[in-house]
Amino acid sequence: MSNFRRSQNEAHPNKTNTILTGIILLQILFISMQIWFLFGALNNALEENFGFALTTFIGSLLMAIASIWLLRYIPEPLQKRPTKKPEVSPSRDP
């Protein structure tokens, strides 16, 4: 049985690819910024800049939540329909 989603996926197979690439690129962007924040916090927290450490922590936490939230939108892999096993009617049994 076919539905709209299956038809769409089969008509546009590149869409899954694009969504997944986009999600990974966004996550890499978030992680790069988190590395930057962490470096800054390490450098500044040592010198009584508590406000900076706290601000970077809040930013980093928001980006972590966004990165994990993005995982909701990872598309399911396109799978081939399972081949139907040939049904053997009892009447054909020898």
């Binding site: 997944l20 990974i24 996550q27 988190q34 916090a41 508590f50 993005l70």
Partner: peptide, 27 residues
């Protein structure tokens, strides 16, 4: 797979946030 890689990136992102929180707690 790319799906697994994306999940790993999510985990890594969480680890960075925790590290940053550790700095705040320590301060």
């Amino acid at each position: 797979s790319r799906r697994e890689f994306a999940k790993f990136l999510g985990l890594l992102s969480g680890a960075f946030a925790v590290s940053n929180g550790f700095i705040v707690l320590r301060a």
